[in-house]
Design a protein around this nucleic acid. Structure first.
Lengths: 213, 213
DNA sequence: GCTCACATGTGTACGATGTACACATACCAG
DNA sequence: CTGGTATGTGTACATCGTACACATGTGAGC
């Protein structure tokens, strides 16, 4: 056996081991550095140490690679939300549900500010409601960002913090507000705002959602 | 004089008359057909009937052309908002202010659904808070979309419909919600929703903003 | 264990794009 | 009329996505 498999540092000649994974990882790096437009097929193959055409053994075209990178980035968003939720310490079940709901927003927006390129990539490409629940986009809990929001809203209803008749489509209202703020932060007019002001806006948007749902 | 100036249909040889304007117009058409990525410099020059290099007499690079197209598209958004506001008939000043505020949201989202390509282009590129007030992005009233929202919120305060202490930064909260919904509609998971459902969501998001501000 | 078929990576090639640079042409000032 | 400047042309190059023929490992069946 001439080559180990899955070894990133050592270059193996010819057979790569797991080129598909390597291309997606390179794509995620590119997305981090420059957003979806920077996910360039040739550069990904360069970083994986293979010829450009090799990518076509694993992806139909550049868009297919970008879709896969997009899914990976959504999984990172899910992880960021889970991280914020994991920090919650509360004995009161109702209060805990409320904090878990808010953590969906804070985690989402924290990730958008910390990794704007990956965030933009996560929501750049084709994603209908079906693929929003694909497992490739899930975090450690096995849930996608969208599903984490849905669960948090269900919990609000279960704890009596949200009237059942206001529950339908509430995920879209909450998502709109939080996602819109992220867009304004990343390449919208709020880009240059100092960080404390951004934090204040984040809290106020989440307040608006809580009161307005 | 061999050539009239500003004539779109008749091809004039050599001196074009107003190539800058022609390139921006072609760019707006391209944006309408395929969003910001479709604003391709060479295709714009092709439609204007000139050589590719000619564009560089009027724009530093492709991004500069895209910025100009972006401004034009924002002006179209402003016009859509103004159109919705113009349809308001109300003798009650407070009610009129409230409807004008809601019309900012409905006009914004109506344009996003009717002209997704131009809408995406309008908010795709570099736009900080300064350029958000640039006159190139204004509609017939001379106000940009952002300024129309600001004015509408000021009127709400003047009519006693919004507490003064809630006024600061309110434009960013309202914009977040409405802009986020537009994104979810255009290339997000809500793309395939039937139109009536979209209209319901639009009304609910605006309700959320009114209650949550 | 040998062979052969298939999966996977290589090399070359083509059209499109953004952009630089030298050249050509039309208009304006004197 | 004449020359300078603004504006459009032509050619050229690097890069990108992608197609296609070819090379090379790997595993299945004898």
């Amino acid at each position: 056996m001439t080559t180990g498999l899955g070894d990133s540092p050592a270059r193996t000649s010819y057979r790569h081991g797991d080129l598909r994974r390597a291309l997606i990882d390179a794509g995620v790096d590119l997305a981090q550095e420059g957003g979806p437009a920077a996910v360039v097929l040739r550069e990904a193959t360069r970083r994986a140490g293979v010829a450009p055409s090799a990518a076509y053994r694993h992806f139909a075209d550049r868009q297919a690679l970008l879709d896969a990178v997009c899914s990976s980035c959504q999984a990172l968003v899910a992880r960021a939300i889970e991280a914020d939720q994991a920090g919650i310490r509360s004995t009161d079940a109702a209060e805990a549900a409320r904090l878990r709901f808010r953590a969906v927003g804070t985690g989402y927006l924290r990730f958008a500010l910390e990794q704007p390129g990956q965030f933009q990539t996560a929501f750049s490409a084709s994603s209908d409601l079906d693929s929003a629940t694909s497992s490739a986009r899930a975090g450690d809990s096995g849930l996608t960002p969208f599903q984490l929001l849905t669960v948090a809203l269900d919990d609000l209803v279960a704890q009596g913090l949200l009237a059942a008749e206001r529950r339908p489509a509430a995920e879209f209202l909450a998502w709109s507000a939080v996602h819109g703020l992220a867009e304004l932060f990343i390449d919208g007019p709020l880009r240059a705002l100092p960080d404390p002001v951004k934090q204040t806006l984040i809290a106020r948007v989440i307040n608006m959602v809580e009161q307005g749902l």
